[in-house]
């Protein structure tokens, strides 16, 4: 990753995921993929994919420790 800021890699990773998502959506219309799963199952599958993506980004940021009750704007003590 010499010379490329990590944030840029993240951007391209997201852009790639977005392109794949659009391609998959287009393909699913063509191949009748909606019939493979029920609406509820599709929703759960997308949520699981989103959870995994968010967890990966959070690990990347490695800042879970930064959140603290005393820093929370509505809870100044």
């Amino acid at each position: 990753m010499t010379g490329v800021p990590p944030a840029l890699w993240l951007f391209w990773a997201f852009a790639g995921l977005a392109v794949m998502g659009v391609a998959l959506a287009a393909a699913s219309r063509k191949l009748s993929l909606p019939g493979l799963l029920t609406a509820r199952e599709w929703k759960a599958a997308i949520q699981i994919a989103a959870i995994l993506a968010m967890i990966l980004v959070m690990i990347y940021f490695q800042n879970a420790h930064r959140y603290d009750a005393s820093e929370f704007i509505y809870g100044r003590f």
Partner: peptide, 17 residues
């Protein structure tokens, strides 16, 4: 379960990222 987990991780993502 997935709904609840998604809501929690989305909240965590908003706060932490």
């Amino acid at each position: 379960f997935v709904d609840i987990a998604f809501r929690f991780v989305w909240g965590l993502f908003q706060v932490n990222v």
